[in-house]
């Protein structure tokens, strides 16, 4: 297991440095004066320009600039936003819980519905239920989620008035951000009805964000289950006279879920990309909306820090999934 771990770690280090190169190059590739881009001032006097050039180190050779950028990054300094003048890292950390909360709800929704539906579709292969769910699933993973989010608002907020249109909490409540997770913070506070309000705000964005992972998980569970159901040990289990529930729930499911774990790992990327669109539409104050706003405001230090942090999250999640995978399936660990 240790060699497996080291091998995986060895693979992510070059990727991490690759992403830092990408982030480093970003403001330097944009046409225009990098000083103006990074500081956000226009019409600077030549003295001010020269002073900033020296202060940002942009007059030094590229490899020195990169080395100083890397040492800043490794010590946790990701620069300062040119719009809010706040450190990029602290802005990110303030907004990140909102994205985690939304993504967690979405993935729970996707797993909670996707796995049972996938199993049922496999067991009832060739029936109307199977065709119907697979048809819905193709539609689900083809969905332009920004449009789907608009439709959900149209139906449930505008049409039926069941859920609020945007935000994380009704404006009548004021909650201290103890943990940054609205569901927990509202439970901790004494205000009446605030938890319900937080839940109601969370429903539509979670559905919108969960749609694509849900469709993928349902398909994956179905095909993986079908594969396992054809195995000899399943026939043996059936021949022994075990109840169908035991055969499927205990014998088949364990092996069928292994590929699904990989899909969950891949879903993190889908969720973070989806968060960009979902958060923008529902005015959800998370990192997806923040990155889009940074792109629109041409706030390059924030974009730079944002992509680096998002890439790190994805790298770490993929590493954990790989390790989990190796833990569950010894064939991978000892495999080629």
């Amino acid at each position: 297991m240790l060699t497996y771990l080291l091998k995986k770690l060895g693979m992510i280090v070059p990727t991490f440095f690759g992403v830092t190169i990408l982030a480093f190059l970003l403001p330097r590739l944009v046409p225009g004066d990098p000083i103006e881009l990074m500081v956000g001032e226009r019409g600077m006097s030549p003295e001010r320009h020269a002073e900033l050039l020296a202060r940002l180190g942009l007059d030094r050779p590229w490899h020195e600039q990169y080395l100083s950028y890397i040492s800043d990054v490794l010590s946790g300094d990701l620069g300062t936003s040119i719009v809010t003048r706040e450190p990029v890292l602290s802005e990110f950390l303030t907004l990140f819980p909102a994205t985690i909360e939304l993504s967690l709800c979405a993935i729970i929704l996707a797993l909670g519905i996707g796995i049972p539906v996938g199993i049922l579709a496999a067991v009832k292969r060739g029936t109307l239920f199977d065709y119907l769910t697979m048809g819905i699933s193709v539609t689900g993973y083809s969905m332009p989620i920004f449009w789907w989010a608009l439709l959900l608002i149209l139906m449930f907020s505008v049409g039926l008035g069941w859920t609020p249109v945007s935000g994380r909490l009704s404006a009548m409540y004021w909650i201290d951000a103890t943990t940054g997770f609205m569901l927990i913070d509202t439970l901790l506070s004494d205000e009446k009805g605030d938890f319900i309000s937080a839940v109601r705000h969370l429903i539509l964005p979670s559905i919108a964000l969960a749609t694509i992972p849900l469709a993928v998980i349902a398909r994956m569970t179905r095909s993986s289950m079908l594969e396992v159901l054809g195995e000899d040990y399943i026939r043996t289990a059936r021949a022994k006279g075990l109840t169908p529930f035991r055969v499927i729930g205990l014998h088949a499911l364990r092996n069928a879920l292994i590929p699904v774990i990989t899909v969950i790992g891949l879903a993190v990327g889908t969720l973070l990309a989806g968060a960009i669109l979902t958060e923008t539409i529902f005015a959800w104050p998370g990192i997806g909306k923040w990155i889009i706003e940074s792109v629109h405001r041409r706030d390059y230090p924030s974009i730079q820090g944002g992509i680096l942090l998002v890439a790190c999250i994805i790298i770490i999640v993929n590493l954990s999934v790989d390790l989990l995978y190796g833990l569950i399936n010894p064939r991978i660990r000892h495999g080629r």
Partner: peptide, 24 residues
């Protein structure tokens, strides 16, 4: 292949955003 890994390190849409942020 390492360059391709770097391009895959970010989700597709975010990578596209970054490139559009550079190019306009």
């Amino acid at each position: 292949m390492r360059i391709m890994d770097i391009l895959l390190a970010l989700p597709g849409l975010l990578m596209a955003l970054v490139i559009v942020a550079i190019l306009g």
